[in-house]
């Protein structure tokens, strides 16, 4: 039940969101308007420095917006942060794990902080390890894992508590094709089970495969929004990558 009664609120609604870093010159994000419906797998695309990570950080309550309004699952960001944090999950760009702890210990730690305990926690740890194919390696230290295994465990730590809304910030960077394929399959499984996702990546084929809608960002603003097919057709392009380059330019972004 949502806090607003029978109406199902959007999973995420952002209106005129601005983020200005202190002493940072131009705003990192300006006039950001996006709505993500519940059950959607929503892609956020943009070149380096477009503001994707800043937006994800504001959506996950890590950063405070300098202006505008954001609502997640009916809760207002800023005043209902604790409630929001219980309902969301984050898979950060970095391998946000304790390298000297085993996979099981990492999941135990994050699960306890989400309020899981006892048999329920043990069950979720076992399920998550099986979900990412690390059941047999669960008692090994993370530092001994390959890049792909670490990425999969990074995902497991974000879904351990079965969040309603999952944020994934470039979750497949720097891994082998097999691990990437497994992660994408698992994300689709989770989405089919009703988990809403906001996904940022630089890989266009991932977006085309996973996302039902995307927003393309550049210089802190949304410059295009719709399903990948709609956007490609509107732009008269052959692929999402061609559209992306036509919208954001071919100049290098560092």
């Amino acid at each position: 039940m949502s806090p607003e009664g029978d109406l199902v609120p959007p999973a995420l609604q952002a209106e005129g969101v601005v983020k200005q870093y202190p002493g940072g010159g131009a705003p990192a994000v300006e006039g950001f308007d996006v709505t993500v419906r519940q059950g959607e797998l929503f892609g956020l695309l943009g070149p380096n420095g477009a503001g994707k990570t800043t937006v994800i950080s504001m959506m996950t309550t890590i950063l405070k917006p300098s202006g505008g309004e954001m609502h997640l699952l009916g809760f207002r960001i800023g005043s209902d942060n604790h409630s929001i944090k219980k309902c969301i999950g984050l898979v950060p760009q970095e391998i946000a794990l304790f390298q000297e702890m085993t996979a099981q210990e990492n999941l135990w730690f994050f699960g306890r902080l989400y309020g899981l305990s006892g048999a329920r926690l043990r069950e979720r740890i076992a399920d998550c390890l099986e979900f990412i194919g690390l059941t047999d390696r669960g008692n090994q230290k993370v530092i001994t894992y390959s890049g792909g295994m670490k990425r999969r465990l990074n995902l497991a730590a974000g879904i351990l508590h079965e969040p309603q809304l999952l944020f994934l910030d470039e979750p497949t960077v720097g891994i082998d094709a097999q691990s990437r394929n497994l992660i994408m399959e698992k994300l689709l499984d989770l989405n089919r089970c009703g988990m809403t996702m906001v996904y940022t990546t630089h890989y266009m084929e991932e977006v085309e495969r996973l996302c039902c809608r995307v927003a393309i960002m550049d210089r802190g603003r949304v410059i295009g929004e719709g399903s990948p097919r709609e956007l490609i057709n509107q732009g008269g392009c052959m692929s999402l990558e061609e559209l992306f380059l036509s919208m954001t330019g071919k100049r290098l972004r560092d």
Partner: peptide, 14 residues
């Protein structure tokens, strides 16, 4: 902070 664990903690109800 470097490894992103702190970022993950900030997004958690703790």
């Amino acid at each position: 902070r470097r490894d992103g664990v702190f970022t993950r903690l900030l997004a958690m109800p703790v």
